[in-house]
């Protein structure tokens, strides 16, 4: 009987460990997007500033995904022969938004205003990594609480370690 309990416990614990390991270290950090959009070409080679497309970053808690009109603003003329651009055009003509997959996802209980960070002079690359050199967006930071707090501590943010500064 005792043996059985030990086996069962071992099974359950190891199952949990396996699950955790998968979630923690093997989750998809660079999901495939509906359009093979390259930040490297836009932000790197052509040096388009981040906030040209992510227009709300300085005004709101969300930075904003570029609206399709913004894409079409340039791509009505530029590189219209590329198959990827033609996909964008197809969405535009169907009047459908592009269903991007979220890479940097924060849980519901976190209050993270982009605005405060941008206005405090935190570079986008600080958290999002070297985007101008990424073809496909890859999550480089863990976005976990310890990671947030490290930065808040280093920068000596006022009340930066209080729970309700970031939780809601």
């Amino acid at each position: 009987m005792k043996k059985l309990i030990v086996y069962a416990l071992t099974g359950v614990i190891s199952l949990a460990i396996g699950y955790w390991v998968q979630q923690q270290f093997f989750s998809d950090r660079a999901p495939v997007q509906p359009i093979n959009f390259s930040h490297k070409i836009h932000a790197g080679v052509n040096k388009i500033p981040c906030q040209y497309c992510h227009i709300y970053a300085e005004r709101s808690r969300v930075s904003g995904v570029p609206n399709v009109q913004r894409c079409m603003g340039c791509h009505k003329i530029i590189k219209t022969d590329s198959p990827e651009i033609q996909k964008v055009t197809a969405y535009w003509e169907k009047k459908e938004p592009i269903p991007w997959t979220k890479v940097h996802n924060l849980p519901d209980y976190v209050y993270f205003p982009h605005k405060r960070h941008v206005r405090a002079g935190v570079e986008c690359t600080n958290c999002h990594g070297d985007v101008p050199n990424m073809d496909r967006i890859t999550k480089v930071s863990s976005l976990q609480m310890g990671w947030c707090l490290t930065c808040h501590t280093q920068r000596n943010v006022k009340n930066g370690r209080d729970c309700w500064t970031c939780h809601k």
Binding site: Q22, Q23, S27, D28, P31, G64, V65, P66, N67, V68, Q69, W92, K95, E96, P97, I98, P99, W100, T101, K102, V103, N105
Partner: peptide, 12 residues
């Protein structure tokens, strides 16, 4: 694994 949440932009 939950499929990544979607980011739906405005068209205009």
């Amino acid at each position: 694994q939950t499929p990544g949440a979607k980011l739906i932009p405005y068209l205009v």
